[in-house]
Design a protein around this nucleic acid. Structure first.
Lengths: 194, 194, 194, 194
DNA sequence: GATGAATGAGATTTCATTCAT
DNA sequence: CATGAATGAAATCTCATTCAT
């Protein structure tokens, strides 16, 4: 397989630590300790601490894209409402199954890091897939309104439930996750679709 | 006239800095520089850095509660749908008009700080006001379903749009804020209410 | 009475704190807190922290002298051995009854403070009283040897037991204090005197 | 060859500084300056300032034990009085030849540091060697009395002269050290032994 | 006789990072 | 591929002390 074992380990430990305690609270030494190597060694695999984050973000974007892509591909032939619902649910599931990534990508904002560029990322591609879906719905006469407004509202819808479930996972008595998500999306779509 | 001017200045500058760069990135020195006093002097007014955050959180909770309370009081006699919509909008408006507070209260999670207790806070009281409203709607037969599921879904709805508008305020081409929020809430309520 | 009440309180609290935690560990703020006044106020009564110590030392010397003087005066007419024993015991008793003073005077060494001068102090007068006693014993033919050697050895004898009882008062299982001191002095005097 | 040179240097400089100015007065920066390295580097070799002290104490206890052990071993076959005298003198000599250690071990009291545990230390083993010697004397009928009282008195005897010679080494006109110690011990033993 | 506001200096400690090996 | 030794910068925080009132 390609990629050194150590590098993957670093990524794995760093992403967990970043989620649990926050990027700024995690020192290179803490990562090294978890991995079981020397701090110096981290620099053999990454230019610096920011670089670890960037690699994490890129991986996250890529996984995110694959979630959305897969949902769309698998339901291509189905009814629009179902297709849309599945796409939205796959967004939420990406977040819940990849909390570390989701937090770094959508809850925190690292755009003050010069090297974090969003426009060109797979993240944007994921959005565009959703937007295309809305576009399709509008062409079919199933959705009405400004496509930008609708897209942004939809993002708000699914980001809200995803981010709350991640950020306050331990400090709130949540009802059953999947029922909640189903209700959440269904209710909104009932209002959105003809 | 009484009440130290410096203390208020510290709070004001700290909350801005915390929003822009994140709590961890802000040092006591940076705050002191902005305020125009010595770092030592901060410790006259606050026990430590965490204490500044706690005061900010408390103020935020209090302002939050007043937003929700006011929305409910002012629309007491109106139709349920309007009352609910106004309450939801006042949540979003609280966030957009108090970005620093909203970020600290709902986007970040400081519950690992021992002294941050949520259950007893005004934040919880704000939630309960919303929950009571749902309860009222259920009693009137206008809303159906599990009250917990509905409340949590509603929170996700409004938190999503609020937090995105705050976190990515500079890195995304948002449509007109108020139209977006209106569409967001209206669409969902169309699905939720009879 | 002369002397402000606050000044005496400061001295009382400071000496206790200095004994328990050590001069360096005690801050002006801690003293002020114990006394129940503002740190600034301490400077109305003492030039600075060192000054508090100096006043304590002076008081300690003075009390020390009175202990020794009294022992000698009260036993002037008695047999030499008893006179000497009482003087030695009064040294130990001074220490045990004034642990704070004893520690500052004889266990710590503050001579690196310019203003601490020993030669001229009451401490030296106390020593001289003991030395005079030895002198008397030699003239009576009851003690033989170099007076300096004898004085210094005697000081070591009583300082040893006193300082151990103070320094390790909580961390050692001491036998009955007075029996120990009696045995200590008696054994030595049996060897010293004819 | 192995074993960092820097670590030994730190220990050497720190112990001298601690003796001269007191543990609390010595900052990590001062130690680093003396050693000729950066303050940060001290933390490569010791967890923190307290840790330096603990290492010093441990080394001190170990050297102390070896002094006492050696004195006893070397005089095993000699007359009891000589054996005891040599043991007592080796205690004093340990102090005078290792003033830094002696001060930290016997003059200061660091038992408020959690990690300083005395019961299990080599210091206690040293004491026990002396106590065993007394026991032997009692069995031979050469010493009479309560063994605890005698041990504690003996400790006071030798601690007194040792600590005075260390604490006031520069501020008192001492007679010849070895004659003083000989006289001190001889006089006491004359009273103690049959 | 007392205090609140303020400060410069310095304490311990941790950080990301580099360099020689 | 890896590490031990080292560092400059900066973090939080406490200190003794002063000044205006």
């Amino acid at each position: 397989m390609k990629g050194s074992n150590t590098k993957d380990q670093i990524i794995a430990e760093a992403s967990k630590l970043f989620l649990d305690e926050g990027y700024e609270m995690i020192s290179m030494r803490k990562i090294a300790t978890k991995v079981g190597c020397s701090p110096t060694n981290l620099y053999r695999h990454f230019q610096n601490k920011e670089d670890i984050l960037l690699v994490l973000l890129e991986r996250g974007y890529s996984v995110f894209l694959s979630y959305i892509q897969q949902a769309i591909d698998q339901n291509k032939e189905l009814e629009f409402r179902i297709k849309l619902k599945q796409a939205l649910k796959s967004y939420v599931n990406f977040g819940l199954e990849n909390k570390e990534y989701y937090q770094l990508m959508f809850i925190r904002n690292f755009e003050h890091f010069d090297r974090v560029v969003i426009g060109e990322s797979d993240r944007m591609k994921g959005f565009n897939l959703l937007a295309n879906l809305i576009q399709e719905g509008m062409e079919k006469g199933l959705v009405k309104g400004d496509i930008e407004v609708i897209s942004q509202s939809l993002w708000g819808l699914i980001h809200g439930i995803t981010s709350l479930l991640i950020t306050f996972k331990n400090s709130f008595h949540w009802t059953n996750e999947q029922s909640l998500i189903d209700f959440h999306v269904d209710t909104y779509l009932k209002g959105l679709l003809k």
